[in-house]
Design a protein around this nucleic acid. Structure first.
Lengths: 142, 142
DNA sequence: ATCCAATTGCGAATGGTTCGCAATTGCAAA
DNA sequence: TTTGCAATTGCGAACCATTCGCAATTGGAT
């Protein structure tokens, strides 16, 4: 995932991006702001600007916002790419991509359990594709 | 799902419970308070008491709190039973049951694709449980 | 019926997030 | 490269869902 083309590369946004890129865990806006001014007295990026940068990234689908139930603070992390699920035919094993994700575009996930930080998920739907159903109906007649 | 035995049956809690029971959709605390005093001037249940009732229900695992990203207000609903999926900790492999099914309680799964006959589905959420998160944070400090 | 811990009414405080506005800054066009 | 201007930021104040504090009330065990 790289810095979204659609956004101006400003000092604050680049800083926020760099911090998120180099973090292995999701961070709160406050943590990002703190890391930005690395212990210095004066702030490198003002907290409200961190929020605005994150909002812009989120709209550009480059960043994920996550709310866990045990804290009122949102957690932010870079979005992963390529997110799809499949319907799998139990007969011929063919896969057809589901349109969208039952969780919504990443939302809802945080509702899972107050103690659980969600990183990803698997969704698979099983059944029979149209072709196989036809064949199976024919075969059944024999 | 019935009113938790462990909790005192007070007027406010019974009211909140009744409202949640008779609602087909999740409600915000404010909505519950409004429904409680059904248009009357004086409040039947104070908002902070609604929050406290919901908190008690949630601790008793009788109510679900849900945070969606498009609103800062939490949604509350009675916990359902039957048909579940799991959140799996990538570190310790522990499983915790997901509350509800992302496809909705009553499988409109056949809507997935007209050509696909759905027989079942798998949903698994991956991430880190609270304990492992704590451990990982400690380890990170070393 | 009595007693006491649990609960509520009520308002004030908290704290994460958003907003407003003047000053600054990317960056497209000249 | 310089210019022009819309986008962005610094900064603080405002917002608002939720939590807290405390005195008054109440459920329910004895």
């Amino acid at each position: 995932m790289s810095f979204p083309d659609s956004l101006r590369k400003t000092k604050s946004r680049l800083k926020v991006w760099e911090i998120l890129s180099s973090s292995t865990t999701p961070l709160t806006a406050r943590q990002i702001a703190q890391k930005a001014d690395g212990g210095n007295e004066e702030k490198a990026v003002w907290l409200s600007s961190v929020y605005r940068a994150l909002e812009a990234f989120e709209k550009a689908q480059a960043v994920n916002r996550t709310l866990l139930k045990d804290s009122p603070e949102a957690l932010y992390s870079l979005s992963e790419t390529g997110h799809h699920h499949y319907a799998i035919c139990m007969n011929c094993k063919s896969r057809t991509e589901l349109e969208g994700c039952p969780f919504g575009e990443h939302e809802h996930l945080h509702t899972v359990d107050e103690d659980f930080m969600v990183v990803g998920h698997v969704v698979e739907v099983f059944g029979y594709c149209k072709d196989c159903r036809k064949k199976m109906q024919k075969d059944a007649k024999k």
